[in-house]
Design a protein around this nucleic acid. Structure first.
Length: 526
RNA sequence: GCGGGUAUAGCUUAAUGGUAAAGCUCCAGCCUUCCAAGCUGGCUAUACGGGUUCGAUUCCCGUUACCCGCUCCA
């Protein structure tokens, strides 16, 4: 990344050129909300299109979903968001530190007092930092936005804006299985707005209260089913080819690493340098209790290395939760598995069962559950496990903006130094692909030719017409917008239908025919 | 949510208890045969709400937003 870039410089350019505005600026702004201007919305659209293309369209094993933002509140009870998002907090009035009330009480061996909707601290609870007993009452900080469905605002009509897009995929899992003609392993992808009432939005658009996610739930067989079908489970030690086509024998950990590689490859393809991407593996307490593993893909933002995407192995936690809460089974039937199981004789079945029981009990699960699970496997049924790559679109837009920003100082042939601000977007995500200019605007023949060429190119790509000011100024304006190429129509064009193509990054020009131009752009934009 | 700081035009800055200035950008026109050229003209600002005052952009209070440090990030 550009080490000298600070967020205010970037924010200033984003406003000046129309990438990002403060939401509701006319009325003083509103904390944690941002708008994307003409260039910003093109950038975001390109990001989403690129993700959709990579994750859904170019794969046979992923389908899409677009669910409503407001869903049945029971979904958030099943997922744990309704409770987990409502931790009561206390502040120390003396040293001004803040703590979770339930943790504070637990540490000090007392019980947090709960009534219907409020909490209270028992007497004698102290601030662990300074020892003061001068604490505020516990206050809930529910991170979900609450609203009411229908005109009556009472507790029976409460609903929440979704805090993540993922849950809808689980909630619609059965419908998708019934209609998509997919077999496990397969994935369901969704992009869309999510809302979290963050206590403290910070770092420009990085942590916003309304944000967009691009999430994939990739459903896989439990390792035990893989073993029944393939006779073995491929582990990382077997050195599977993660860049090649997925294999039926892969265990969950191989699938996790496969998706990490897929996602890193994609980030590099849209222009984030490998050196600025990091993996952070969550350990111990950081890991949600149900997660087997979670890796954050992080980017070196101007304000520090921060998460772009989390890729989690969540086992069958979510579908099981919805099965429990809804009372509807989430098993899928796997013909291949049933046939594999049918080939086992009784001793082989018994040996397999003993092995699973041993594994499960070692993990602290009950023998009864293990036996029930195996019995279902033999019938070809299981609840799929899931690998969840979950990316933040706005964070990625900010990363791409940070990465693209560059200032270039050079001395021209007259000995004058000049600074050029240039957004070096990868062509695939650049808001405008091409600037189209007449060299001068007061020659009707030239002007008309340039308009014709513009109209032709505009059918394929987002192009920008500019006729005002000197040609150099027009190039520089496109540099700040991050437009990778500019086409200038000059007098030679009238003779031989060639144009000059000026490249943003090196400011070099080449002359080429219109058909060569189209081929070149096709190849480079992708 | 706490503490500190900041708020003048699209951007960067100036000035002032009494007509808010400039550069760049932007727009229009002229000119212009390739890197922010020149000339002419134009649009645009004291974050919001109170208070003190004859008069407040300036002093005071509150609010909002942004930045930094805590906190938070299920």
């Amino acid at each position: 990344m550009n080490k000298t870039l600070d967020l205010e410089t970037l924010a200033s350019l984003c406003k000046r050129r129309g990438f990002i505005f403060q939401s509701s600026e006319l009325y003083g702004g509103i904390n944690g909300f941002w708008d994307y201007g003409p260039l910003g919305c093109e950038l975001k659209r390109n990001i989403k299109d690129a993700w959709w293309k990579a994750v859904v369209r170019t794969r046979e094993d992923v389908v899409g979903l677009e669910a409503s933002i407001i869903m049945h509140p029971a979904i958030w009870k099943a997922s744990g968001h309704a409770d987990g998002f409502a931790d009561p907090m206390v502040d120390c009035k003396d040293c001004r530190k803040r703590f979770r009330a339930d943790q504070l009480c637990e540490e000090q061996g007392v019980e947090l007092i709960k009534t219907e909707a409020t909490f209270a601290l028992p007497d004698g609870v102290q601030c662990p930092a300074c020892g003061s007993k001068n604490l505020t009452p516990p206050r809930s900080f529910n991170l979900m936005f609450k609203t009411f469905v229908g005109p009556v605002e009472d507790e029976t009509n409460v609903a929440w804006l979704r805090p993540e897009t993922a849950q809808a995929i689980f909630a619609q899992f059965s419908n998708i299985v019934a209609t998509a003609r997919q077999k496990v392993p397969f994935g369901v992808a969704q992009m869309g707005k999510s809302f979290r009432n963050e206590i403290n939005p910070r770092n420009y658009t990085f942590r916003s209260r309304e944000f967009e996610q691009m999430e994939l739930e990739f459903f896989i067989r439990p390792d035990e089913a893989v073993e029944l079908i393939c006779g073995h489970v491929t582990q990382l030690d077997d050195k599977p080819d993660l860049m090649g086509p997925p294999q039926a024998s892969w265990g969950w950990n191989v699938w996790l690493h496969y998706w990490i590689e897929q996602r890193l490859t994609w980030y590099r393809a849209i222009g984030l340098p490998e050196a600025d991407l990091e993996q952070y593996w969550q350990v111990g307490d950081e890991l949600a209790h149900y997660a087997r593993a979670c890796v954050d893909i992080e980017y070196a933002f101007p304000f520090g290395v921060q998460e772009l995407e989390g890729i989690a192995a969540r086992a069958d936690f979510d579908l099981t939760q919805h099965q429990t809460h809804s009372g509807k089974h989430m098993d899928i039937f796997d013909e291949t598995l049933k046939q594999a199981a049918a080939k086992l004789d009784d001793p082989a079945r018994e040996a397999f069962t003993r092995k699973v029981v041993t594994d499960w009990t070692r993990q602290g699960k009950s023998e009864e559950d293990a036996r029930a699970f195996v019995a279902k496997l033999f019938d070809g049924k299981y609840i799929p496990h899931v690998i969840e790559p979950s990316a933040g679109t706005d964070r990625l837009a900010l990363a791409l903006l940070s990465n693209a920003y560059d200032e270039e100082t050079f001395t021209d042939h007259k000995g004058k130094t000049d600074t050029r601000t240039v957004m070096r977007f990868h062509p695939s995500i650049a808001p405008i692909k091409l600037g189209v200019f007449p060299l001068v605007k007061n020659k009707p023949e030239l002007y008309g030719k340039a308009r014709d060429i513009f109209a032709q190119l505009q059918r394929r790509w987002n192009c920008f017409w500019d006729e005002s000011g000197a040609i150099g100024r027009r190039y520089r304006r496109m540099d700040e917008a991050g437009t990778p190429w500019c086409v200038t129509v000059d007098f030679q064009t009238l003779d031989d239908d060639t144009v000059t193509l000026r490249e943003r990054d090196n400011m070099q020009q080449v002359r080429l025919s219109l058909s060569d131009l189209v081929d070149k752009l096709d190849a480079e934009i992708g």
